[in-house]
Design a binder for these strands. Structure first.
Length: 290
DNA sequence: ATACCGACCTGTCAGC
DNA sequence: TGCTGACAGGTCGGTA
C-alpha cells in the first residue's frame, strides 16, 4: 500500500499522537509472518520504553525508544543501583521499525475501539491509548534494533543531483526497475515511479545507462516534485489507505498515468498504455515518454 | 550483474 | 448466488 508520501503522512500523525508516551504492555498475535524479530524480543524491547520520536526511513516507520528494558531491571543489583545514584542511569535506546508492506496500517485507538480483523500487535500506552498494527496480507514487517537501523539507499528528497545521477550510471536495468530498487533510492514505489517517469518524459523500459545526464537531472526534479506534492495532499488513497488519524489522502486525484490505462494522456490525448515490467503494472504515454 | 518469475498472503471486483 | 481469475501501494529468493 504505502510508498514514501503515505509513510511520511502516517509518521507525522503518529509522532503528534504518541511522541512522549510510553509503552506499558504489548500483545502480539499468533501469526509469525510479520515478525522479523522474535515476539519475545519485540515485546521485551518495547515494554517500559518511552517513544521519543516517530520518523521515516524510506518506506519504514521508525520509533526511537528510550528507557530501561525489563531485562535490565531484572539484572540490576545493589552495586549497579549504588553506581546509578552517583551518575545518571545509562539511557538505553532502541528502535522499533515497522514496514507496512502492501496493506499494513498503524493506528492509535481507544482501548474500547473494536479490534480490527488481522490485528497482529497492540501496544498499550501509558496514556491509556493503544497503538495497533493491522495487516491483512501480512507483507508488513515488525522488527526491533538495539544498534542503528540501516535501511540502505538514499532519501529521494535529500539526495543531491550529483548523487542521484551517479545511482544510475552504467546500469543496464530498465529505469523503472532502478527507481523501485530500495538499495539505490529508498521510498519510491510503483505509483510514484510511474508518475515521476511521466513528468520526466522517460519510458519505464528505457535502460538507465542510456538516459542523458540532462534527462536524469529532469528525473531528479520530477521525483522530488511528485513526492512533495503527494505529501502535501496526504498521499494517495487507492483502496483502503488512511493515515494515523483515519484520513484519506488526495494525491490519487493528481495521478497522470497510474491507473489510467486506455484513458487519454492529459497532455496529448494519446491513450495511456499499461505494460508489465518487473512483475508490476507500469503506465505511460507512448507519445510524451521516450 | 541482470532480468524474469513465482512466492509470500488476503481481499475485492469483474465476468460468467 | 456462486465460482474463477486477475489484480493490488512490496520485497525476496531462485534460476537462466
Amino acid at each position: 500500500m504505502p510508498e514514501l508520501p503515505e509513510v511520511e503522512t502516517i509518521v507525522r500523525g503518529l509522532h503528534t499522537l504518541v511522541a512522549g508516551d510510553s509503552v506499558e504492555s504489548v500483545w502480539i498475535g499468533s501469526r509469525p509472518q510479520p515478525l522479523k524479530s522474535p515476539a519475545g524480543v519485540i515485546a521485551g524491547t518495547l515494554e517500559g520504553k518511552r517513544i521519543v520520536r516517530v520518523h521515516r526511513a524510506g518506506k519504514h516507520i521508525v520509533f526511537d525508544l528510550e528507557g530501561a528494558t525489563r531485562t535490565s531491571h531484572a539484572k540490576r543489583d545493589v552495586r549497579t543501583d549504588r553506581a546509578q545514584t552517583r551518575r545518571p542511569a545509562p539511557v538505553q535506546t532502541a528502535q522499533w521499525v515497522v514496514h507496512l508492506g502492501m496493506t499494513g496500517r498503524m493506528v492509535v485507538s481507544e482501548p474500547a475501539a473494536k479490534i480490527a480483523k488481522h490485528t497482529h500487535l497492540i501496544a498499550t500506552l501509558a496514556s491509556g491509548r493503544e497503538l495497533r498494527f493491522i495487516d491483512p496480507r501480512m507483507f508488513g514487517k515488525l522488527s526491533v534494533h538495539a544498534g542503528g537501523f540501516d535501511p540502505g539507499g538514499v532519501e529521494p528528497l535529500e539526495v543531491s543531483e550529483e548523487r542521484f545521477v551517479a545511482l544510475f550510471r552504467g546500469r543496464k536495468t530498465p529505469i523503472k526497475s532502478a527507481l523501485l530498487n530500495q538499495k539505490l533510492l529508498r521510498g519510491v514505489g510503483n505509483i510514484y515511479a510511474d508518475e515521476s517517469l511521466f513528468r520526466a518524459g522517460i519510458r519505464p523500459r528505457r535502460r538507465a545507462a542510456t538516459i542523458t545526464r540532462e534527462q536524469l537531472g529532469t528525473l531528479h526534479r520530477a521525483v522530488r516534485e511528485v513526492l512533495c506534492e503527494a505529501i502535501a495532499l496526504g498521499g494517495s488513497s487507492i483502496s483502503d489507505y488512511v493515515d494515523a488519524d483515519g484520513e484519506e489522502g488526495f494525491f490519487q486525484l493528481q495521478h497522470r498515468v497510474y491507473g489510467r490505462e486506455g484513458e487519454p494522456c492529459l497532455v496529448c490525448r494519446t491513450a495511456i498504455r499499461r505494460i508489465v515490467l518487473a512483475g508490476r503494472s507500469s503506465h505511460y504515454c507512448s507519445k510524451c515518454q521516450k
